[in-house]
C-alpha cells in the first residue's frame, strides 16, 4: 500500500499536481505561524534579564540557522535517494533545496553577526567553532551549486552533485555538536536537553512557533521551485506541454 503510494509520489505529473494543491495551504500556514511567532516574540515574550530586548533576535536567527542545516539534510537525503534508486524527482528536490538552504544559511550568518555585535561585542569570532563550521556549510552549498554550474549534462550533474552533497553531510553533526565539543562564545543547547529546555516557556513557545513557521515557509518555497524544476525537466513530455498550453490561454 505505502510502497505504491511512494511509487506514485515519485511520478512527476502526480507530484506536480500534489504540490500545486498543497502550495496555498503551506503559504497560508507559514504566513500565519510567522505572524503569530513575530507577535509572540516581539510583544508577548518578556525581555531577557541579561540581554534585555536584544535577545529577540533569537526569533529570526535560530529558525534560519536551523533551516540552513535542515535544508542541507533534506538536500543530501534527496540526493542519496536519487543516486541510489535513480529517481529523477529526488534529484529535482535536491536541486531546488540548495539555493534555499544557502539563503537560510546566509540569513543565519547575517542575523548572528547583527546579534553578536551588541551581545558579544563582535560581529565575528574566529575562535567560535560553530561560526566557522557554519560558514563552511555556506561554502559547501556554493561548491554544490558551482559543480552543477560547470557540468553541462543534467543527468551527470544530478549524480555528481549527489555524491558531493552526501560527502558534505559530515559537516552537519560537527556544527550540531560544536557547542559541546568546543566551549566558546556560543551557548550550549537550550531546547533539546535531557532535563528539559533551559529557557522559560514564555520565550520558548514563540520560538517553536517561529521554527514551525520557517519550516513551512521552506517547504512552500521548495514546492514553488520544484514545480518550476519539474516543468523544465519534463518539458518534452506530453502532460507538461498540455499544461503549458492550457496556462497560456
Amino acid at each position: 500500500m505505502y510502497l505504491r503510494w511512494f511509487h506514485k509520489l515519485s511520478s512527476p505529473p502526480y507530484f506536480y499536481r500534489l504540490a500545486s494543491i498543497l502550495s496555498p495551504w503551506l503559504s497560508g500556514l507559514s504566513i500565519a505561524l510567522i505572524a503569530a511567532g513575530t507577535y509572540g516574540g516581539l510583544v508577548l515574550a518578556p525581555p531577557d534579564y541579561l540581554q534585555g530586548d536584544g535577545f529577540r533576535m533569537i526569533y529570526v536567527h535560530v529558525p534560519s540557522a536551523y533551516l540552513g542545516m535542515m535544508a542541507y539534510v533534506v538536500m543530501a537525503m534527496a540526493a542519496a535517494v536519487g543516486f541510489i534508486w535513480r529517481i529523477k524527482l529526488a534529484h529535482a528536490v535536491a536541486v531546488s533545496a540548495a539555493p534555499l538552504g544557502a539563503s537560510f544559511t546566509l540569513l543565519g550568518l547575517v542575523t548572528g553577526a547583527i546579534w553578536g555585535k551588541p551581545m558579544w561585542g563582535t560581529f565575528w569570532q574566529w575562535s567560535d567553532a560553530r561560526l566557522v563550521f557554519f560558514l563552511m556549510l555556506f561554502f559547501l552549498y556554493m561548491g554544490y551549486l558551482a559543480l552543477r554550474g560547470v557540468t553541462e549534462d543534467r543527468d551527470k550533474a544530478d549524480r555528481l552533485s549527489a555524491v558531493l552533497a552526501v560527502v558534505g553531510v559530515i559537516n552537519i553533526p560537527i556544527i550540531h555538536y560544536s557547542v559541546e565539543w568546543w566551549t566558546t562564545l556560543h551557548q550550549g543547547p537550550t531546547i533539546t536537553r535531557l532535563d528539559g529546555p533551559s529557557i522559560t516557556m514564555d520565550m520558548l513557545v514563540p520560538l517553536l512557533v517561529m521554527i514551525a513557521g520557517f519550516s513551512f515557509f521552506f517547504v512552500w518555497l521548495l514546492f514553488v521551485r520544484l514545480r518550476g524544476e519539474i516543468l523544465v525537466r519534463e518539458q518534452k513530455s506530453r502532460w507538461a506541454q498540455e499544461l503549458m498550453q492550457r496556462s497560456r490561454v
Partner: peptide, 23 residues
C-alpha cells in the same frame, strides 16, 4: 573524481574540497 569528466572542472576542485578540510 567529481571534476575529471568536466572540461572546465579544474579550477573548482578547490571550491569543492576546501570547505571539508576544516576539521
Amino acid at each position: 573524481a567529481l571534476t575529471v569528466g568536466l572540461r572546465r572542472g579544474g579550477p573548482i576542485v578547490g571550491l569543492l574540497v576546501l570547505p571539508l578540510t576544516g576539521p
